[in-house]
Nucleic acid binder design. Structure first.
Length: 428
DNA sequence: AGCTATGATTTGCC
DNA sequence: GGCAAATCATAGCT
């Protein structure tokens, strides 16, 4: 076709030379004289477009309307769109397909896990409970802190959702606005629906990056809250007296092997209203501290031994079992602590004979419980207790030597330091 | 304020 | 994963 050179000239170099679309549209007619007329049309249209900016507003408006109604308008519009498509938008289009953002996914997952996003109820508390369980703290004791945590989390959640809603609303508003604008402008500019769609995507991406910032700062807030809440050391509370007594009773009545089974730990935890991890912590601390300074714990050991012995005696006097209801061993489900009578009086090892009415208790025990017979002789001294325990508790000696390998029997029998004197816990 | 007691955490071992 | 040991950080007493 020889239209192209003419077009180029007549349009002052408007770049549509050799465009197949235009040729296509121009061939839509019947050709011949009609084709000549169309060439003229296009020349006119282009001329008008080029000069439209020089005209007054009213004039331009009228001209715009005329151009819009021009029969060649759709063809020209398509051509311009295609040209535009091939230049600017092709560059943009290349960047369009992004892989799902890993960072965003991580943030989303975290917010979901922390109960900030996702279902309203349960999420936060569940996360808090899980977090608490993870560190072994936060039993029923600190439900106040727990609810405080939840309240703060709810606050964060609310802020997050408010902001998110705001962003979404702004995004929608802006998108609608831009879409309307572009649709409006597409009457005078070559803007294809595809381009509008692209623009919408661009807007969404921009807004989602803002959203990501929101999510990020929310995550940070949750992390800070969590670290504060979960830093149990910051809010350490001593266990109540009853709990400590229960734990001590178990410890001293299982002194030969103070390693409660998982079940025993659970039982103790239940009784003391603390978590199993706290029980584990307690026994870990107790073992190490006892071992480091047996002398210091002698008095305590004596006391609990006496108590346990008294209880055992009491019960045995009344008939049935060696296990006292008040001891950890029997108060819960029967036999759950797998106590053997050998353990029961290992704690008497620290008795020095005169410090405690061992003879009296011993006599009672001896008369009632077969296994306790050995214990009575223990009141004489530690080495004897070892010998005695060996008889009925083969594990005893092992366990004794096993966990108490550091302190020698002599150090127990005749401690070089009195109770409550210098202690060797390096922490202090 | 200084000190000790104590629950929790960390580290390294098995 | 459970444990010992060391350490931290706070409670609670003087």
């Amino acid at each position: 076709m020889d239209d192209q050179p003419r077009l180029m000239h007549s349009s002052h170099g408007v770049g549509m030379a050799g465009h197949p679309g235009l040729a296509q549209h121009m061939q839509d007619g019947t050709g011949g004289a009609d084709g000549e007329g169309r060439k003229q049309d296009i020349g006119d249209i282009l001329q008008q477009i080029m000069t439209i900016t020089d005209q007054s507003l009213d004039e331009a408006q009228a001209r715009k309307h005329a151009l819009n109604c021009h029969r060649m308008k759709p063809a020209l519009f398509n051509v311009l769109c295609e040209i535009k498509e091939k230049t600017v938008l092709s560059i943009r289009g290349a960047q369009e397909e992004e892989p799902p953002d890993a960072q965003l996914m991580r943030l989303d997952n975290m917010l979901l896990a922390e109960g900030v996003s996702g279902p309203e109820k349960g999420g936060g508390s569940a996360a808090a409970a899980a977090a608490a369980a993870a560190t072994g703290g936060a039993g029923s004791d600190n439900s106040a802190e727990h609810s405080d945590y939840r309240a703060k989390l709810t606050q964060i959640r609310q802020i997050y959702h408010t902001e998110l809603e705001k962003y979404e609303q702004a995004c929608n508003e802006f998108t609608t606005h831009v879409m309307n604008l572009l649709r409006e402008q597409s009457r005078t500019r070559p803007i294809s629906p595809k381009e509008i769609e692209r623009m919408v995507n661009i807007i969404h991406r921009k807004f989602s990056s803002i959203q990501m910032q929101l999510k990020q700062s929310t995550c940070e807030a949750v992390m800070i809250l969590r670290s504060r809440f979960l830093d149990a050391r910051r809010k350490r509370r001593n266990f109540n007296k009853q709990a400590t007594e229960i734990l001590n009773e178990y410890f001293y009545s299982h002194l030969s092997n103070p390693y409660p089974s998982e079940e025993a730990k659970e039982e103790l935890a239940k009784k003391c209203s603390i978590t199993v991890s706290q029980v584990s912590n307690w026994f870990g601390n107790k073992r190490i501290r006892y071992k480091k300074n047996i002398g210091k714990f002698q008095e305590e050991a004596n006391m609990y031994a006496a108590r346990t012995a008294a209880t055992a005696t009491n019960v045995s006097t009344h008939g049935s079992q060696a296990n006292s209801p008040s001891t950890p061993n029997s108060a819960g489900s029967a036999g759950s602590f797998n106590m053997n009578s050998g353990d029961l009086f290992m704690s008497v090892q620290s008795l020095n004979g005169d410090s405690y009415q061992g003879a009296q208790v011993g006599a009672n025990v001896q008369s009632q419980v077969d296994t306790l017979r050995h214990v009575i002789s223990q009141t004489g001294g530690y080495s004897e207790s070892l010998a005695a325990s060996q008889i009925y508790s083969p594990q005893g000696i092992n366990a004794n030597g096993g966990w108490q390998d550091a302190p020698t029997p002599s150090s127990v029998t005749s401690p070089t330091e009195g109770p409550g004197s210098v202690h060797s816990d390096t922490s202090n």
